[in-house]
Design a protein around this nucleic acid. Sequence first.
DNA 1: TTTTGAGTTGTTCGA
DNA 2: GTCGAACAACTCAAA
Length: 484
Amino acid sequence: MSSPVLVWFRNDLRLADNPALAAAVATGRPVLPVYLFDEESPGLRSLGGASRWWLHHALSRLGEDLAARGAPLLILRGAVAQVLPALMREVGATEIHWSRRYDAAGIAVDAALKSGFEAAGITAKSHNAALLVEPWHVTTKVGEPMKVFTPFWRAARARGAVPLPSPAPARIDGAALEGLRGLAPSDLDLLPTAPDWSGGMREMWTPGEAGALARLDAFLHEGLAGYTELRNRPDMTHTSGLSPHLRFGEISPRTVWHAAEHALRSGVSAASDRDLEVLQSELGWREFSHHLLFHNPDLARTNFNRRFDAFPWREDPAALCAWQRGRTGYPMVDAGMRQLWTTGWMHNRVRMIVGSFLVKHLLIDWRAGEDWFWDTLLDADPAANSASWQWVAGTGADAAPYFRIFNPVLQGEKFDPEGDYVRRWVPELGRLPATLIHKPWTASPERLAAFGLKLGRDYPHPIVDHTVARERALAAFQTLKGAP
DNA sequence: TTTTGAGTTGTTCGA
DNA sequence: GTCGAACAACTCAAA
């Protein structure tokens, strides 16, 4: 039989619009799909706990989908540099395809692998499955990377129309796996045990390509109309909910882009042109994050603006822990942190509020927040997580100005006006009326007692006073003025 | 080289 | 209650 072509799946766990898979199928030779769980290659950041849970299910679904088309997925574990070349030799393959990644460690691993393969006469080809535009294709007029979103996105869009997504191959001629024994997803030990904290995630999410498409469909029917305003409402469901699916490549941004345009044209969605434009610009932020990461490999650890290297961050493990556990005494912050802990996801508006709170109210280094999100978010990816934390901390190039300090009470009253979001995630405040739910400490103990609440017993007192913390933050940021 | 206009998401204060 | 200004320069990107 003819030698097989490998498709190395990574963060592109889908069949549709997967150019690596399509290229392998197009060779007409048998296709061997492989997933390699690699915790050994140097420099790779290990997956957070929430992401591991998702990966388990995503691999299970992908394996089923591939098997149904005729090409079962081979799951292996180990260091790429050892396992993949050995596998290629073992099956007699001379061609391999994969989708590009954009983090420095991943790029280094892939580049070394590719040059090794090429030296051995093996065809190794990488494809763009993850982005609308490659990070190196958007530059200023003088060829420099972009540092500001608006001109970046203008330039990205000026490169022309987004390509249409390609359909999934109807059938894949799978390579025979005689003598090859792979692992089951469960062999990778990705699921939590003792305790199993994944109940809230199972309830909310359906990992896998079909789950991604169902989520997209529901969003286009119900969420997109009014997106411009309502996406800011954590008490409603007007965000796409696609972030973990995009993170693992279960759906491509090209698919989302065109499906949204089609939903407007066909009348499936009553969304306005503006709603569509805002949704597309959210995809634009995802692109911009990857652009920043590609051109700033240490984005997750190093201040984009090096002036902040001298910033007087506070060490405060107790405050950090209160923030992580949703016990800061600010209902909006605590609701967000508990939503994250339970579901592996947090509404975007609330991410800004909790991020601002950690960095500005508590003066804790943004990297501590980035670490926590990395471990607990299902959609944590090295580009968006780093770029977003740098943005909120004010350390990014195109960052929030230092005086932009979210007031968690005002934000709550504005974006969760009835208090429903807080009620859902902070049930001990559930009996408070909307007028109190974002600031319970303003009521007398007697009044709170009428609602079955005693601060300090049922729910914490505010960990810091907003006005005091705000002044402290402004003073701290002031110390950087004029620094080199 | 210099100039110019612009830059996701906010809050507070005082009129 | 509403509204505009101040918050502070600084950097980016293009002309």
